[in-house]
Design a protein around this nucleic acid. Structure first.
Lengths: 146, 146
DNA sequence: ATCATTGCAAACACTTTGCATACGC
DNA sequence: GCGTATGCAAAGTGTTTGCAATGAT
């Protein structure tokens, strides 16, 4: 019990440091993102914590994520199509999405392109690399994939 | 007149080669995409050709793009947020989106990551690189940007 | 005549907005 | 008690679906 309290206290501290007052909703969203590093959608977050906060509304999750983005706590990423996904920001990494199982995996590679500051006179502020293919689990379980 | 006819005929031929029967709507969508290589959204395409085909419906543009994607004539790309953009397929290139003017520019760079076939045992089928920043035009016209 | 294509209207999914209520200091 | 955070309901946006009308061969 003591241990769990201190975990929550750590989260509270992180939020405060970023200038975010730590409501229970905000704490739970943040906790969810740190525990589930699979680039959840708003829906996944909502479904994941609504049992702990029965009055939770999806609007609140939207609000919280917007705030987190503004405060640089998380990043919105666009993996595919029209689903927005969110990523608790740590360091630059590339995303690999398996077209078979839909999971998204992170890889920290140090590609040369990350160091580019400009391209042909255009100022680069951000770089996103997104790979898709078949993850090793799906390759293993399903030999007849290409 | 003769010249224009031959252009249209070329487009017709391209579509036929891909197994697409060349209706006027399909021709115009394809022509638009070849003329405007700025990764148009459905809306941009619709607005761009609706004057030439007054009865055109947005549904038809959606249908046509879905067909083109299935036939590998164009690619759907996810540049940002919730807008789907389309790209007449040629060769692998990276996208640069200007956060100021919203334009998307292509660059053909030969980054090492394109040659990777697998990463940590996962099979790579596709690689998308998307940069954002401020394009040289906006830099020039607006000195007080960061 | 038959089959494919088009295009309207309605349904859908995701996100944002307006506003009243509830909460924390 | 005051200012902020929450959450419902409604509106907005982008896309898909159902289906009847149209067009081509």
């Amino acid at each position: 019990m003591k241990k769990e309290e201190s975990t929550i206290d750590k989260l509270k501290k992180s939020l405060k440091e970023k200038g975010i007052s730590p409501s229970i909703q905000r704490l739970k969203v943040y906790e969810y993102m740190l525990l589930h590093r699979n680039h959840p959608s708003v829906d996944m977050i909502y479904e994941g914590i609504k049992d702990e906060i029965p009055t939770l509304s999806k609007t609140t999750v939207y609000n919280i994520l917007k705030l987190f983005i503004k405060k640089n706590l998380v990043k919105a990423i666009t993996i595919e199509g029209n689903e927005l996904r969110y990523d608790a920001y740590t360091k630059p990494h590339i995303h690999f999405k398996c077209i078979k199982c839909g999971n998204i995996y992170d890889f920290e590679i140090d590609d040369e392109i990350y160091n580019k500051k400009e391209i042909d006179g255009n100022k680069i502020l951000e770089c996103n690399i997104y790979l898709s293919g078949i993850c090793k689990n799906c390759l293993k379980n399903n030999k007849n994939l290409i």
